[in-house]
């Protein structure tokens, strides 16, 4: 099966790889680029752990072939914090509000919440729950995560 040469920008870095078409974006990020912050849970679009941003839109990287991301801009959880390691407001809020326990689902939540608050800076509780419904967490009971979204929203409103 013919390989495809794909180019994309991942966390601000230009990347070029030869890929089999069946390689998912998630596998490209993890196995080829070493960006193992993107987690794989179900690998068929249910759990949301592999959520990344493609041209700014939150998508499941297990439901996208790397070749489909050719020419796109991809942001993973590794690209969210500042260069000096300072956590983004969303990441800081998850830490401060006990929005994680084991942390497996957290990269997906960080990406989903980052896109959610960019598009809707002041979401209602219902909008938060709806916005997070595509990400599963087996530890927290979600209350801490929901609190983190509210906290991050006010932090962002106050200039981050």
């Amino acid at each position: 099966m013919a390989e495809w040469q794909v180019r994309m920008v991942v966390n601000g870095q230009a990347v070029e790889q030869a890929v089999e078409p069946r390689l998912t974006l998630a596998d490209l990020l993890r196995d080829r680029l070493g960006l193992t912050g993107t987690h794989l849970g179900c690998e068929h679009g249910v759990c949301g752990a592999c959520t990344v941003l493609v041209d700014g839109a939150a998508v499941r990287s297990c439901l996208m072939f790397a070749v489909q991301a050719d020419g796109r801009e991809v942001t993973t959880v590794e690209g969210v914090a500042a260069d000096d390691g300072t956590l983004s407001p969303v990441q800081a809020a998850l830490r401060d509000c006990h929005g994680l326990q084991c942390g497996f689902c957290s990269p997906g939540f960080v990406m989903t919440i980052t896109a959610l608050l960019r598009d809707n800076p002041d979401p209602s509780d219902e909008e938060i729950r709806e916005g997070l419904s595509g990400n599963l967490c087996r530890c927290t009971g979600y209350q801490g995560i929901i609190a983190a979204v509210r906290h991050a929203a006010s932090a962002l409103a106050n200039g981050g």
């Binding site: 679009g45 949301g48 959520t51 839109a57 939150a58 998508v59 499941r60 439901l63 996208m64 989903t112 896109a115 959610l116 709806e130 916005g131 419904s133 595509g134």
Partner: peptide, 12 residues
Amino acid sequence: TPLIGHAQIRNR
């Protein structure tokens, strides 16, 4: 539309 999958699904 909002009843389809989740936001991440609807984006693709």
